[in-house]
């Protein structure tokens, strides 16, 4: 519930990595919440996209990576098209996925063996190719 801020915390590694991978300047975000307002899957998210950006900016790595927000993002770019400050929030969500997937533990977000019966035959390859790119390390 409480955080201590120092300039190292503000210029933390986590935020820098996310900014590098996504190519976005998180300081430009003035927390207007337009992205959360327009996100079609926000209803299922523990915290909204604008809060994820805020948490990242403040260097709260565990809390940011602990939520399902960036795993639920379907890269539909509705947020990016409406951001008044021109931040590409979809890229930030992708960057967060990359941060987790590129970690040493190489932990995948989905386990293929756990797919239900007949799932592989039913679902088109597009879903697998894009899904595996987004969820497998």
């Amino acid at each position: 519930m409480k955080i201590e801020l120092t300039r190292q915390k503000v210029h933390n590694e986590f935020a820098k990595k996310v900014e590098l991978i996504s190519g976005q300047n998180l300081f430009a975000c003035y927390q207007c919440g337009n992205c959360t307002a327009g996100c079609p899957v926000a209803f299922a998210m523990e915290i909204g996209p604008h809060e994820v950006i805020r948490y990242t900016l403040l260097g709260l790595e565990e809390e940011t990576l602990g939520v399902n927000t960036y795993w639920l993002c379907a890269s539909c770019l509705q947020c990016t098209s409406r951001c008044p400050k021109g931040i590409d929030i979809a890229r930030v969500m992708d960057a967060l996925r990359m941060v987790v997937l590129r970690k040493k533990e190489r932990k995948d977000h989905i386990q293929i063996p756990e797919f239900p019966e007949g799932f592989l035959e039913k679902v088109p390859q597009i879903a697998f190719v894009s899904g595996f790119r987004k969820f497998l390390s």
């Binding site: 927390q31 207007c32 919440g33 337009n34 992205c35 959360t36 307002a37 327009g38 915290i47 909204g48 604008h50 809060e51 509705q78 409406r82 008044p84």
Partner: peptide, 23 residues
């Protein structure tokens, strides 16, 4: 918070907004 979209739904006007203070 800003409003992302407004569309008509029968009699009503649906407004998709956000309250960034409660997230």
């Amino acid at each position: 918070g800003r409003v992302s979209r407004i569309f008509r739904d029968g009699e009503k006007v649906i407004v998709w907004g956000v309250d960034t203070l409660t997230g």
